[in-house]
Amino acid sequence: MWKRVNCLSDRPLSRAGNEIFLKAVIQAIPAYIMSFFQVPVANCESFRRSLADHWWGRENGKKKMHWRSWEWLTAGKDLGGLGFQDFVVFNQAMLARQCWRLLTEPNSLCARFLKGRYFPNCELLEAPKPHSSSCTWRSILFGMELLKEGIQWGIGNGQRTKLLSDNWIPGIRPFMLSPRIAIPVGATVSFLIDEDQGGWDVDRVRAAFEDVIAEKILQVPISKRGGEDFISWPSTKFGTYTVKSG
């Protein structure tokens, strides 16, 4: 990155050309390695410094004043920023993409190998981080932190989704749940389902949670086909993606 930036010191670009150069060339250099490994924060800070210094320019061998913060540079243009990528966030997003592939392709060689090595007796989302874990596995768990913030469970029989710790109620995060009655920590959503009727146990739901949250729960659809719960990505303008857990 340093070499690419300094090769243009004798060929100044316009402001627009400089922006395109930084986004299309400089930011693309670490993209491949960031897709597989967690890059140390110190390296990301070096990337950030190199990019920011070149954007604001140099004069007489000294860098010019940085008139706006890095947070402003990385904010989207619809928010008034310039849309440069934050390298730490980008790194985590690329690793989260690898985690998503492990979820959607559980029979791939990579997924089967990692399962046999690190989580043979549980799901990927519950996989531990042993002290002897490799750099690859630590990187995947780093991306998993972000993935867990975005995925959402769809309800089938409710036996795989953790009632108090998984994200399964649209618009309600797990930390917002404060049950009125005692619910075991490891309880699943099946605790709130009437198996005979194949729907929500309305009385239990209303007894367990406040009215606002209870109404949200009762609006969550239960799969008519039954079967296992499934993982989905919340609906966006790009569509909704679903995958069977396990």
Rank of each mutant, 00 (worst) to 15 (best):
L8P: 01
S9N: 12
D10K: 14
R11K: 14
P12W: 06
A16D: 10
F21W: 04
K23T: 10
A31R: 11
I33H: 09
M34C: 12
F36K: 02
F47P: 05
G57F: 03
N60L: 05
K63I: 10
K63H: 11
M65R: 11
W67L: 10
W72Q: 09
A75H: 08
G76D: 07
K77H: 03
K77R: 12
L79K: 15
L79W: 06
G81S: 05
F84L: 03
F84T: 04
D86R: 06
V88N: 09
A93H: 09
Q98T: 13
Q98L: 13
L102F: 02
L102N: 00
L103A: 08
F113K: 00
L114N: 01
K115I: 12
Y118A: 09
F119L: 04
N121T: 14
E123N: 12
E123I: 15
P130L: 06
S133V: 14
S134V: 15
I140W: 01
F142G: 02
M144R: 10
E145S: 09
E149A: 11
E149G: 13
I151W: 03
I151M: 10
Q152E: 15
I155K: 00
R160G: 11
R160A: 05
N167H: 14
N167F: 11
I169H: 00
P170D: 07
G171P: 12
G171L: 13
S178V: 15
I181G: 00
V185C: 09
A187I: 15
L192V: 13
L192Y: 13
L192S: 12
D194T: 10
G198N: 04
V202K: 05
V202Y: 01
R204M: 12
R204K: 14
R206M: 14
V212E: 06
I213S: 05
K216E: 10
K216W: 11
K224A: 07
R225E: 06
E228L: 07
F230G: 05
F230N: 03
I231N: 03
S235D: 01
T236S: 15
F238A: 12
G239E: 13
T240H: 09
S245Y: 02
